[in-house]
Design a protein around this nucleic acid. Structure first.
Lengths: 146, 146
DNA sequence: ATAATTACTACTAATATGATAGGATTAGTA
DNA sequence: TACTAATCCTATCATATTAGTAGTAATTAT
């Protein structure tokens, strides 16, 4: 039960955009460099994010990406649910026809609950929260480096 | 972010043993039949469960498996953590040397938190709880089938 | 024009997962 | 002792998923 690199990279990409919110579009190239992620791979991750309206893109020279909403209006659940392809921990939760034992299965109920809890936690964290944590971490790093 | 079949099968196997607690060892063959799971596959899942001391096995004719502790003393976290190979949602949480960005990475903190919450929830559910839910579900099923 | 960017499509390599196969070992029973 | 039914052990296989690459087309500021 690990989260995919897609989700992780996607979250980091979104944080990067959040940090640049209001400063005009950001090149994928720069994000890729900052975050040490393959630009080509990021260019795939960006597609669903755009399709869902979380980011806006500008093509051509001086193009790039911007957050479609303010950082406080985007939470981690939206991002992760999208890139992970749902937050259900079992196939039979979204689609109960995948297993004939749904009516009997007790463990399924537990996993349903856990999945909903995860969604709750992720929903409670906005990109703005991440920015704050990020700034805090950077200050700490500054202090330690003196 | 799905849970593996190993964990799911393992949980169901453990519930099956819990339902037979105090009635002597159960054959893998019977569990496999009841739960509609390949016996050979179950025989692999059983190994770590035994190694961790959650179940005891008896070899030879009239052998089988029993819970090593009472159902109230075994919780889902133990089972899932074992079969899933840890409850960390990221490799860099257990082993921080896998990523050079640990000190900067904000999203990692979130995933750390989520993982701990999952562990909490799973820890709060014992096999005894599952037995109760199971009996309840069976009663319901009886009523509906009249 | 041209240069720099996103958009699109296909492919590949590596890894993990789920499952199977077959025999070795153990122990109860006749 | 021979037989049988169970666990134990090791290897293998097939499939799916994941992570990542490659190349080209479309778009737009200069």
């Amino acid at each position: 039960m690990k989260i995919s690199t897609r989700s992780r990279y996607g979250s980091r990409l979104m944080l990067e955009l959040a940090l640049n919110y209001g400063k005009g579009p950001v090149f994928l190239r720069d994000i890729a460099k900052n975050e040490e992620i393959s630009e080509k791979y990021l260019s795939q991750i960006v597609i669903p994010l755009k399709a869902k309206g979380l980011i806006t893109s500008f093509r051509g020279m001086n193009g790039g990406y911007v957050l479609a909403k303010s950082p406080s209006q985007i939470n981690l659940r939206e991002i992760v649910e999208l890139l992970e392809g749902g937050l259900e921990l079992l196939g039979c939760i979204g689609n109960s026809s995948t297993c004939s034992r749904v009516a009997i299965c007790v463990t399924r109920d537990i996993w349903d609950l856990v999945g909903k809890k995860i969604a709750q936690i992720l929903e409670s964290v906005t990109l703005e929260d991440l920015i704050k944590s990020h700034n805090l971490k950077n200050e700490e790093a500054m202090i330690y480096s003196i």
